[in-house]
Amino acid sequence: MARLPRLTLPGLPHYVLQRGNNLQPIFADAQDYACMKDLLREMGRRFAVELHAYILLPNQLHLLATPETADILPHFMQAVGRSYVRGFNNRHGRSGTLWEGRYRGTVLEPQAWLLPAMVVLESQAVTQGLAARAVDYAFSSARHNAGAQVDGMLRLHRAYWSLGDTPFAREAAYAQLLDRGASEEVQEVVLQAALKGWVLGGDSFVQGLQQQTERRLTRQKAGRPVRGDAPIG
């Protein structure tokens, strides 16, 4: 089946996934990770894209981001990708692209899916055996969102604020969610939605978005439907 065209909507969070070609490594050393973080910070400011969460894995990167305008997220990802590959190739004496193709992603209903998606994203280091706990992994936003350190390039989404009345309460509540992790079912739903371009949200959310585009927003009805409520654990 042909891949759906990517959907970008202003003011809504997007789960974005970019993988190495044939899942080859895209980071060779600590300087590469630092370079990618610098680019995300710089291009986020330049293109008015708010970053809520990220993880840099050896062969892929995942982002949770909200673009200010409808056309800005592709430009942001293109700028990050091209600049990173150019620097990576110069440093490591290689040529050609690193990426398997254009990035993939999906739009999230914030209240139902932002927190589950954050947990799925920041738990990828644990899922892939790179760390015992999400906050132990150095190349992600987990420590910031759990209150262990400050990362100035990140912006908390309003859905995160619903976790508590004070910063400490929110950070403690999120740290508990992160330690508990996401169920295999929720992980599968989030990652497959990002890979396939299916919108994650309840019926009313999806129907409202469907009025704005002719593009199909959910998978066809064969199989189990994606639910609007997203339990973690």
Rank of each mutant, 00 (worst) to 15 (best):
L4Y: 15
L4P: 09
L4H: 11
P5Q: 10
R6M: 13
R6A: 13
R6T: 13
R6F: 12
L7C: 08
L7T: 10
L7M: 08
L7D: 10
T8E: 14
T8I: 07
T8M: 07
T8D: 10
L9G: 08
L9V: 15
P10D: 07
P10W: 06
P10I: 00
G11C: 06
L12S: 08
L12K: 05
P13R: 03
P13H: 04
P13A: 01
H14Q: 01
H14C: 01
H14A: 01
Y15T: 02
Y15K: 04
Y15N: 11
V16G: 02
V16K: 06
V16D: 10
V16T: 07
V16E: 07
L17Q: 08
L17H: 14
Q18P: 01
R19T: 13
R19L: 12
R19D: 14
G20V: 01
G20Y: 08
N21C: 07
N22C: 12
N22V: 05
L23D: 13
L23H: 14
L23K: 13
Q24W: 08
Q24G: 07
Q24Y: 09
P25L: 03
I26H: 11
F27L: 02
F27N: 02
F27K: 02
F27I: 02
A28E: 06
A28H: 05
D29Q: 03
D29M: 02
D29H: 06
A30P: 00
Q31A: 05
D32Y: 01
D32W: 01
Y33T: 01
Y33F: 06
Y33H: 13
Y33S: 00
A34P: 12
A34S: 14
A34F: 07
A34Q: 15
A34M: 11
C35Y: 07
M36T: 01
K37Q: 14
D38S: 11
D38V: 00
D38H: 10
D38A: 10
D38C: 04
D38R: 10
L39N: 03
L39A: 04
L40I: 06
L40Q: 01
R41E: 13
R41Q: 10
M43Q: 15
M43D: 14
M43Y: 14
G44S: 04
G44V: 05
G44F: 05
G44A: 06
R45Y: 01
R45K: 13
R46E: 15
R46A: 14
F47V: 04
F47P: 00
A48C: 12
A48K: 13
A48H: 14
V49P: 09
V49S: 04
V49G: 09
E50T: 13
E50D: 15
E50Y: 08
E50L: 14
E50F: 11
E50Q: 15
L51H: 06
H52M: 07
H52D: 09
A53P: 00
A53L: 00
A53G: 09
Y54K: 05
I55Y: 00
I55T: 08
L56N: 04
L56G: 01
